[in-house]
Amino acid sequence: MKNKKPKYSAIHLDVIKELFYIKSATSAELSLRLDKSIPSINKVIADLIEDGYVAEKGLAPSSGGRRPLMYALVENKSYIIVIAMDQLSTRIGLVDLQNNEAYTAVSLEIDLIHDDEALAKLISAIENYISDSKIPKSKIMGIGIGMPGFVDAKKGINFTYLKPQEKSLANYLSEEIGIPTFIDNDSSLVALAEHKLGDAAQQKEVMVINLGWGIGLGMIVKGELYRGYNGFAGEFSHIPITEKEILCSCGKQGCLEAVASLLAVTNKAISGLEAGKVSSLRNPKHYHSKINMSNAILAEANHGDQFSIELISESAYDIGRALSILIHIMNPQTIILSGRMVRAGRIMLAPIQQALNKYCIPRLFAGTEIKLSNLGFDAELIGASILVIENLEHLI
């Protein structure tokens, strides 16, 4: 049997991608961005209008002469399920082709480390969410999942978590749910979101730090997401940062994750409160889970609780030490702080700067800017939508 000829050419897919990222554009703007002739762009737009993917969106602002038509993707043509996972919690959302929230995102606890039923719980949660959304599966283009661990995005395998027998995780989820599914490392997706839609959009050398239960790194090098030789670049969490014998989840001691991650901060808070530390934080048992406890620490720090501020500041100082190593190696233009901990990001900036002043060669650091993500905690969900869009050739 001969392979069926794809319905859309690469230019068709590129136009859809560009409109997903920039919301709307004239054919002349698309021609310039994609380096294609205006007649070829007009032909592609006509095809996509006929198939219901693109619609006219009024006239562009006048710059003299006839005002050109604007084009945008049709929001409800298709939808994307977006999922952001960390070691303890999972968020599931639904966006349309304008990357607008189409159904309220939900959060649930799924313990990737200790729960043998984690994969079954994930599938059940996705199925229930789709059912609750009332969006038929036929209108869902794909599922994008960001998750921790060593992830081979091309093969759809997570070598650390959720390892079904005999199949890649992406293929297993696709078959079980009935929707094409793509997975990638959480920090890579955060960096992808910053690169396409955030502060790294116009920059070539950017390091994106994903601050959560671990401390991930996504690298934009020469304007592209850098994955390294076998796709596992960016394991920032496991830089050895201390001689203290503190066991890390990787099995080694003294890693950055073990002393400075949000999980480490939460564990220190629990120990401190049990030892009688004065704080506006309540007894750890009140919060019922480390997720709730961590949320309280971030909130109380922003409300001025000294103990919470001290914990986050200590963490930030160690992160700054690790960043000095990164700056010495990569000499980035910008470092963007993203992820769960960015909700207390302003508290972190001063101790990070203090550590950089102490450990970093001034000439190397002079041109590097430290910024808080403008995408915030939603960066991974945004990256999950981009993951699906970047795989359009497998979908339409």
Rank of each mutant, 00 (worst) to 15 (best):
S261P: 01
E243Y: 04
I246C: 15
D186F: 01
Q253T: 15
H195G: 13
S188Q: 06
E257M: 03
G251R: 10
E176F: 04
K244W: 13
A260V: 12
I246D: 10
I215Y: 06
H238K: 13
L189A: 06
N230H: 10
C248A: 07
I177E: 11
V190F: 11
G231K: 01
G228H: 02
I239C: 04
Q203T: 10
E245A: 15
E176N: 15
K244R: 14
M207P: 12
I215L: 08
G214I: 01
S174P: 02
E235R: 07
I239G: 12
A233P: 07
I246K: 09
Y226F: 07
K244N: 14
C255P: 06
D184K: 02
L192T: 10
I220A: 04
S187R: 03
L192M: 12
I246M: 04
I183P: 02
L197S: 15
L211H: 01
V206I: 09
F232V: 02
L225Y: 09
M219S: 04
W213P: 06
K252P: 01
A264K: 07
L247C: 15
L211Q: 09
L211V: 05
D184V: 05
S237E: 07
D199R: 10
V265K: 02
G254L: 02
T242K: 06
S174C: 14
L262T: 11
S188P: 00
V221Q: 03
M219A: 10
I179D: 08
S237G: 15
E176D: 15
P240E: 02
G223H: 05
M219W: 01
V206R: 03
S261D: 02
G212R: 00
F182V: 09
E243V: 10
V208C: 10
D199P: 07
H238Y: 02
L189Y: 13
L189D: 12
P180H: 09
L225F: 03
I183K: 03
A201I: 10
K222G: 02
G234Y: 04
I209G: 02
T181A: 07
L189C: 06
L192A: 12
G218I: 10
G212K: 01
I241N: 09
D199G: 15
M207K: 09
G223T: 12
H195V: 11
I183R: 08
S188K: 11
A200Y: 05
C248W: 00
A201L: 08
F182S: 07
I220M: 04
I220Q: 07
Y226V: 12
G223N: 04
E194V: 14
K196F: 06
K244D: 15
G212M: 00
L262E: 09
D184M: 11
V259A: 07
K204T: 13
I220G: 11
L256M: 00
D186K: 10
Q253C: 13
S188D: 13
I246T: 15
D186E: 08
L217F: 11
G231E: 07
T266Y: 05
K222T: 05
S249R: 07
E194W: 05
H195I: 01
Q253F: 14
E245R: 13
E235T: 07
T242L: 11
E245H: 13
I177S: 08
G178V: 06
